[in-house]
């Protein structure tokens, strides 16, 4: 399997604007920042959550608690994969009991990652609410899951792969649409 770049969906500015908009929406929907915590889903949800945290701090002057969630052990496809992903640590160094948890991920696709993340969060405690923020929603849901905050809605075909590239991991900020070629 090979990935061929088809076109660029977002550049650095577009990504920055999307994060800013989501930050505003989070504050607006929750009528402030009371009881809010951010949890980034490994890997690329984490830098996005860090950016949201900074942006919200810029707007509201509040540094929200930020956690990191590894959902590997909650995946539903482990038995069908040939090889299992490496498990990383989940680092949520605060109680989530009664909190409003905003899960942050890069791409929303089938909904299975979000489902795994919900289970993982619930095993850590009983939050008052869980919300979901994603940079790109590419459709093709296989579960009844929707995002509360979306940077960009992107109609795709199932032969395409959305690649969110972030400075912290990939040394660049952009979103690319790739196509699988055989």
């Amino acid at each position: 399997m090979k990935l061929v770049e088809k076109n660029q969906i977002m550049d650095q500015d577009a990504m920055r604007r999307a994060v800013t908009r989501i930050a505003h929406e989070i504050i607006e929907k929750n009528k402030g920042t009371e009881g809010l915590v951010l949890v980034g889903i490994r890997r690329r949800g984490v830098p996005l959550a860090v950016r949201l945290q900074a942006k919200i701090n810029e707007i509201e002057g509040i540094n929200l608690p930020l956690g990191v969630l590894d959902i590997t052990l909650y995946r539903d496809d482990l038995t069908t994969l040939d090889h299992q992903p490496v498990v990383h640590r989940t680092e949520v160094p605060f109680g989530i009991q009664g909190k409003k948890v905003v899960l942050v991920d890069d791409v929303l696709y089938t909904g299975r990652t979000a489902r795994a993340a919900l289970d993982a969060i619930i095993d850590l405690g009983r939050p008052q609410q869980i919300q979901l923020a994603v940079l790109v929603d590419r459709g093709h849901r296989e579960l009844p899951i929707r995002a509360d905050y979306v940077g960009k809605n992107l109609p795709t075909s199932s032969k395409e792969v959305v690649s969110v590239r972030v400075m912290e991991i990939d040394q660049e900020d952009r979103v690319v649409l790739n196509e699988i070629s055989d």
């Binding site: 890997r43 482990l78 992903p85 791409v107």
Partner: peptide, 9 residues
């Protein structure tokens, strides 16, 4: 299973 780094999304 095993241990690979990442799975494409």
């Amino acid at each position: 299973g095993g241990g690979v780094a990442d799975v494409p999304r």
